[in-house]
Write a protein that binds this DNA or RNA. Structure first.
Length: 278
DNA sequence: GACAACCTGACC
DNA sequence: GGTCAGGTTGTC
């Protein structure tokens, strides 16, 4: 899933349901994706839910944290105690736990399920002060709509790599993934293969604004549910209805009608309008 | 920079 | 059967 808007939507849901909730038990069904001592969290109370880029951190009142990265297909779904009936309508509660439920966290007020078809995601229990020992968090760059200024962004662009690879590099900019990178480049009329250091100051500013625009839109509609992504209530987001070029190979460009092209860049599907993006 | 690895599932 | 998928990490 899950780029910044999707993970933030999950964070808001976790905060809503779990602030001040106490863990009673944890069932690790796929040990490969869970590291650290689950026993450290038993009887601990949640006193915060934070997000850094695409990473989630649940803080507990005993000095430990549970860090979670959902990668491509992870889901965190919460079933409040006694509300299974509410979910049956949506066929979400019925599927929990399911074939792809790899960890279950039991709280005093309900149950949090971690599902992940591809099993790329992970959950790690560490002491709060050791969060930065996890490579993902240690190397994470600044984040749009948060602490990444236009000046920071301009500095990041001093690179000979392609602009798309640069804005998707989590160590340079946190939170931008394939969907929002493709759409932001389209909105700012920049070809994804351009060298980052070839952008004019005007283009850099336009891309900076475009990134904020697409991420803000994603946040507004609860993220993009192209396949597996749902929020903690098991509900889909709406950004897939606003895709500009992502996944639209062969379809007409919204602005000029030229067919959207697809290439591979950094191993990822890359969509652009050959007419509008130079 | 390109590519493979980690996995399962959907689609052609 | 092959290709592709909201990600990250580790090789050449």
């Amino acid at each position: 899933m899950p780029e910044l808007p999707e993970v933030e939507t999950i964070r808001v849901g976790l905060e809503k349901y779990l602030l001040d909730a106490t863990i009673t038990d944890i069932d690790v069904r796929l040990p490969r994706i869970f590291s650290g001592s689950k026993d450290s969290l038993i009887s601990a109370k949640v006193d915060g839910v934070r997000r850094f880029g695409k990473g989630l951190v649940m803080d507990f009142d005993n000095g430990y944290v549970l860090a979670v990265h959902v990668k491509m297909t992870g889901q965190l779904i919460f079933l409040p105690k006694g509300e299974r009936g509410k979910f049956e309508k949506k066929k979400v509660g019925d599927k929990l736990p399911g074939l792809h439920t790899h960890t279950i966290l039991f709280f005093d007020r309900g149950t949090l399920y971690y599902n992940d078809i591809r099993q790329f995601g992970w959950l790690q229990v560490v002491k709060k002060d050791d969060l930065k020992k996890i490579p993902f968090f240690r190397t994470l760059g600044k984040e749009p709509l948060k602490d990444l200024s236009l000046q920071d962004f301009t500095a990041v662009l001093r690179s000979g790599s392609s602009i798309k690879n640069v804005i998707m590099d989590q160590a340079k900019i946190a939170g931008v993934g394939n969907i929002y990178a493709n759409d932001a480049l389209y909105l700012s009329k920049i070809h994804p293969k351009r060298k980052a250091n070839s952008l004019s100051p005007k283009e850099a500013e336009e891309l900076f604004v475009a990134l904020e625009t697409v991420l803000r839109k994603g946040l507004e509609v609860g993220g993009a549910s192209e396949w597996q992504y749902v929020n903690v209530d098991g509900q889909s987001g709406g950004y897939q209805n606003f895709f500009q070029v992502y996944g639209k190979v062969g379809k007409p460009c919204p602005k000029c009608g030229t067919e959207i092209e697809k290439i591979t860049l950094g191993g990822r599907g890359t969509f652009f309008c050959p007419e509008c993006q130079k």
